[in-house]
Design a protein around this nucleic acid. Structure first.
Lengths: 146, 146
DNA sequence: TTTGGATAGTTGTATAAACAACTATATGAC
DNA sequence: GTCATATAGTTGTTTATACAACTATCCAAA
């Protein structure tokens, strides 16, 4: 490594996302324990639909930083689980609008509670101002690279 | 969400690892542009072997936070690319010791330089002390959950 | 009105992660 | 020494991501 500005472990951790992987695994375990039969990736799609129902697959791509094939297949699987429904748009027949089913609406409170619980466990012992710094840095990183 | 301690975006970003995903994607693009024909995951295995060559698959599991099947298949693919070789341990025939090939040794400087460059781009405009806070928080998160 | 480019979504293929079930080898209690 | 148990690694299956190639639809310029 010609430039030694970063310590080895720091470089590795930043690139591999050790911390966020650990958070996702913990939340997945909580989902499994609660017999929700839902992946974190599926949950992250529902997350955007809970904010705004009936958006297109392309809007889900933008919101979740995934490419179109990824969303196609996530929606496929969510449809199999009867959590969403594809509805062809009246105004533009190229688009599918994705709607939550009643089943999915019922999942919101429970899963958000588990996600919140996971974050509380993850950030235990970290002061709010340090969390703020961390959040801001990660936002800058994302903005720098997107 | 019954507990409103976390802002929505914060919750989502922490759990989905938006920032580290962006870093990994940027580094992958640099690998592709340089025609390295190497995935970030494969690189992360080589990373540990550059630190210490000839360790077992189990040790690679521990170092890289992956389960055994994941390492089996990553080593499979690295072997196909002729970047590592499995050598059955003399003292314990259950173990495979993984050794870098000459080809893999030659990749170290170039890829570490690209990784370092990626981090510099990612952290542009962030002061060193804020990077430190972020690194410490992420380490605590990992320790809290592992 | 035709046509060419842009946009929305799908499909194919390769790589990877998680989990369960499996084989082979080592080790310790008896 | 034998056997139960633990450890190292592999294989099968499902889900997800990335990239390329594809279809269908829309729209705007000629």
């Amino acid at each position: 490594m010609t430039n030694n500005q970063f310590k080895r472990g720091e470089l590795y951790s930043f690139i591999t996302g050790k911390a966020s992987t650990a958070i996702a695994r913990r939340l997945q375990k909580k989902f499994n324990t609660a017999n929700l039969n839902l992946t974190i990736e599926q949950w992250s799609v529902l997350y955007h639909l809970w904010k705004q129902d009936g958006i297109s697959q392309q809007e889900l791509c933008n919101a979740s930083y995934r490419d179109k094939p990824s969303i196609t297949r996530l929606v496929d699987n969510l449809e199999k689980l009867q959590l969403v429904k594809r509805v062809s748009s009246e105004s533009d027949r190229r688009m599918n609008l994705i709607y939550l089913t009643g089943r999915a609406q019922k999942l919101q409170d429970q899963t958000m509670e588990l996600a919140n619980e996971t974050l509380l466990e993850a950030l235990e012992g970290v002061s709010p101002d340090r969390i703020d710094v961390c959040r801001e840095v990660l936002q800058i990183v994302y903005d720098n690279l997107k």
